[in-house]
Amino acid sequence: MKILAVDDSPTMRRIIINTLKRAGYEDVVEASDGKDALAKVEIEKPNFIITDWNMPEMDGLTLVTTLRSKDEYKNLPILMVTTRSVKDDIMEAMKAGVNNYIVKPFTPETLKAKINQVLAG
């Protein structure tokens, strides 16, 4: 399974990639914002997306909305990993079409559990 990790913080991308590799997900590609992610989705064809919310150029919510507006990405699993923990934000992300939501800082166990939960449908 190929996972696309989207975050504007290089430190967070490294942490996510290392956590995923430890959980057994070796095939991980990365993008630094929503715009970069849209380009990577076309090229890399990931099976799963993990995205941050607050990013310059294009934020995670716009990325999710853009992907969900296209037929081929309507069912692409998307997990949002963000610092935003306000209830209204979570509802907005849900409405935009994320499959699950994690608030930073996260534990490797939570990340693994949420990926499995999303994949199980």
Binding site: D8, N54, R84, S85, M91, M94, I102, V103, K104
Partner: peptide, 23 residues
Amino acid sequence: RAYDPHADLFNKTTNQEDIDSLF
């Protein structure tokens, strides 16, 4: 700049359990 003005290392407005039950 793209940031969450409420970003906090220790205090989450909504905890993970509530998010899980919401989903």
